[in-house]
Design a protein around this nucleic acid. Structure first.
Lengths: 208, 208
DNA sequence: ACCTGAACACCGTTCAAGT
DNA sequence: ACCTGAACACCGTTCAAGT
């Protein structure tokens, strides 16, 4: 299995694999060269330098996350389906998403989703500024939630854990609340619950 | 102004200053030593190594962000005031907050705020699981929003900018929506708008 | 108890030299 | 057009040696 010529795509694939497994910090030019069986300096010929290598990985990710197909009968349902799809896509590429985020390309990555949201919010009857606000509120909510969630997963044992922080004795006459807060968060449930509440309030007719 | 003895606090102060100005990547042991006018290795005697130095900075931040005094007449208003205070605290220390976040200590940093939210949600009449869900939904919302917002600020010129992405011709029969999406986000406004919508829906009596 | 310089193993990157 | 090793300037960290 002797190597013939190194290609840019081979470099990108190997780099993506390293990043997906161990994060961007684990991607050193020397390790990558070892992985590819070439001299470190060969990589430079194909990708310029480490920074543009990472940029290329980010570019790939932006394109991959792009495609969105909403499902559901009502605009509300379709908005929720967009949210679920995005959450899944983001969760599959935590390190790469963080890198997209660091480079400020999150908006561009979310453009197709934003267009889908515009469509649904419009279908729900919202117009003009109110529609724009709703789209952005939902967009911020989805991205923000996934960022928080990802952090919680990545973090080692929280010290002290929420369960230790919430002693039933602390709660104001509400032991069931204390117990609920001592239980670990169910992110899927909280995600949908929050989004349903938000969508409901945003799509509701304006209150006096 | 000859230095007498180096103290741990001096090291931490100088390190915090470097991090606040230029981010954690700019904090190298050699630069820090130069800043303090000592040998690199002296720092190791006081703080162990770079990682525990960063840990100490994070610990400081967790304590500083702790204190919370809600204001307002209704539970809803007080929840909003907690949100605003937190947002301000977080925005003042972007780099340090990111480091707290990376170390998975966000929950602990937010414990006082969480307790305040529990109090207000309880005052609003919510009990048990529903109260716990509301607290967590609001907490995730605040943290998530600030994370997204911080990213947008930090990011260089978005390419392409949202304003270029939204050509009025694209919008489905709603030029005012397209115009609204082409305008830059007003984060303060969007933050309050989203939070009001969420709080309203969460505190409302359960719908059938 | 506190500080020091020398030394080590790692980085990313450049460059002249090869084919 | 593609690959290479040597060399440079940076890292964090250890350690024996100083006071």
């Amino acid at each position: 299995m002797a190597r013939t010529t190194l290609t840019r795509d081979e470099v990108l694939d190997a780099a993506a694999s390293l990043v997906k497994q161990h994060g961007p910090a684990a991607l050193t030019m020397r390790k990558l060269a070892a992985e590819l069986g070439t001299a470190v300096t060969s990589i430079y010929w194909h990708v310029g330098n480490r920074e543009s290598l990472l940029d290329a990985l980010v570019e790939r990710t932006v394109e991959e996350v792009g495609a969105i197909r909403p499902a559901g009968r009502t605009p509300g349902d379709r908005i929720l389906s967009v949210a679920r799809i995005l959450r899944r896509e983001l969760r599959e590429r935590p390190h790469l998403i963080a890198m997209v985020h660091e480079r400020g390309l999150t908006d561009r990555m979310f453009l197709p989703a934003q267009q889908a949201l515009v469509h649904e919010v419009h279908a729900a009857g919202l117009r003009g500024t109110r529609a724009a606000d709703a789209v952005r509120a939902i967009q911020f909510q989805i991205i923000g939630f996934v960022l928080v969630e990802r952090n919680r997963e990545r973090s080692p044992a929280q010290s002290p854990a929420e369960s230790e922080l919430w002693d039933p004795a602390d709660a104001p006459h509400d032991p069931s609340l204390a117990r609920a807060l001592a239980r670990p968060v169910d992110p899927e449930r909280l995600f949908l619950l929050t989004l349903r509440a938000l969508v409901k309030a945003l799509l509701a007719p304006p209150a006096g």
